Computed example of a mutant assay.
Amino acid sequence: MAGISSSTPAIFPMSLYKPVAVVVARPAKKEREKEEEEVLVIEGIEVKRDEFVKFDVFINDEDEVVTGGGAERTERAGSFVSVPHKHRNRDGDDGGMVKKTQLRMGISELLEALGVEDDDEDVVVKLVPRCDNVHVTISGIKIEME
């Protein structure tokens, strides 16, 4: 994730055909002071129903990336997996080849393990596809309090 700068805005929707790193804003500090979980939300994940899709999600403190802390300070948050299946209705059509979903994962403990301070406003989220020649589109990434 080296070389990522907070001045590089992510352009959504994005196709996930190679690893992508995005700077994601955290909720305001006063919102984070409540004893709630920070939840990473990857919105509008569009995948073809008949393809196996997997991508991993990694998180790093933005300060570590910019100052060269590198991969040793990166934590794996989880994975998204979609197993291929076919669904046919009475007319014999497959009901649409693309499904749209989202991925939500709690990250408060992970941020604590990374040493992300309360005054840090951003984190870097890296998505790494684990399948070749698949079609994945993502419409946004954000962090919410839950």
Results as ranks from 00 to 15, higher is better:
Asp56Ala: 10
Glu117Cys: 07
Val24Arg: 00
Asp122His: 15
Lys99Asp: 11
Val20His: 01
Ser108Gln: 06
Glu38Tyr: 00
Glu36Met: 10
Arg26Asn: 08
Phe52Trp: 08
Ala10Ile: 14
Ser79Cys: 06
Asp132Glu: 15
Asp56Pro: 04
Arg76Trp: 07
Asn133Tyr: 10
Asp94Lys: 11
Glu121Ile: 05
Arg49Cys: 13
Ser15Tyr: 08
Ala28Met: 02
Phe12Pro: 00
Gly69Pro: 05
Val39Glu: 13
Ile42Lys: 03
Val47Trp: 05
Val66Arg: 08
Ser5Cys: 02
Asp122Lys: 15
Val134Met: 10
Val128His: 10
Leu127Phe: 05
Thr101Gly: 04
Pro27Lys: 02
Asp63Gln: 11
Ser139Tyr: 01
Arg49Asp: 13
Asp56Trp: 01
Ser79Glu: 15
Ala113Thr: 14
Met14Thr: 04
Ile107Gln: 04
Asp91Leu: 09
Glu35Val: 10
Ser108His: 08
Ala25Ile: 01
Ile138Tyr: 00
Leu114Lys: 06
Leu111Trp: 01
Asp120Glu: 13
Val65Thr: 13
Gly69Ser: 04
Ile59Leu: 14
Arg88Leu: 11
Val24Lys: 00
Met145Gly: 07
Thr67Cys: 04
Leu111Lys: 11
Met105Val: 14
Ala77Arg: 01
Ile141Val: 15
Leu127Lys: 09
Met1Ala: 14
Val125Pro: 05
Asp50Asn: 12
Val39Pro: 03
Ser108Ala: 12
Gly115Asp: 09
Val65Tyr: 02
Phe58Ser: 10
Asp122Met: 13
Pro19Lys: 06
Val123Trp: 04
Asp50Trp: 04
